[in-house]
Structures are given as C-alpha cells and as structure tokens.
C-alpha cells in the first residue's frame, strides 16, 4: 500500500479501538460495479420498491423530482432493483469505465 492510499495515515487509535458511527460512507463501493442500473424516468412511478430492496442504500428519490435515481458511489450493481421494479423502468447495463 502506498502512503497516499491510506486514508487513516493520521489516525489515533482510541482506547479499545472504539469507532465512530456512520463512518463506512467513506468506502465508495460503487467501484465494485460491473453493471449499472439506469432508469427510464418516464416509466418510473416512484413506488420506491428499488429503494426498499436495495442492500446498499443506493436507490433513492431524486431531489425535487417524481422519480428515483441511483447513488453510484455505493451501488454495487447487484441488479435486485431491476428485478423488483413493477414497471420495468430499471435496466442493468454493462458499465464502461
């Protein structure tokens, strides 16, 4: 590991190695993805099924809109959302990086 890769270079270990809550958000699991979900915003009925069944909190309402979108920082590309979408508005496509 090169030094610049270690985000915890300046870390001080607490007594008992106690950790602060909600801190895994720094880990952007979107880099795992091979397929990415895309949404047909006209077909989306904002039912929220994709959100309900997303293990990675990556399918969320888009601010100020009546459709859902994906937080690609965390989406691992599992494809559950495509399966559970009642209007087939979601499609998994091979990601070009």
């Amino acid at each position: 590991m090169s030094q610049s890769d270690d985000p915890y270079e300046n870390l001080t270990i607490t007594t008992g190695a106690v950790v602060e809550p909600n801190t895994s958000r720094v880990n952007k699991t979107g880099s795992w993805r091979q397929f990415k979900p895309v949404i047909d915003i006209d077909a989306c009925i904002a039912c929220g099924q994709c959100d309900t069944y997303c293990p990675d909190q990556a399918a969320k309402p888009v601010e100020g809109e009546d459709y859902y979108g994906f937080d690609l920082d965390y989406c691992k590309g599992c494809g559950i959302c495509e399966e559970v979408c009642p209007t087939d508005a979601i499609e998994m496509i091979r990601e070009v990086k």
Partner: peptide, 11 residues
C-alpha cells in the same frame, strides 16, 4: 459508538 470492530494488519 461501535465497539469490537475488527482490525486489519495495519492497525
């Protein structure tokens, strides 16, 4: 707080 996290070799 989160107690009992696992530590990797670097920690």
């Amino acid at each position: 707080k989160t107690m009992g996290a696992f530590a990797r070799p670097e920690h």
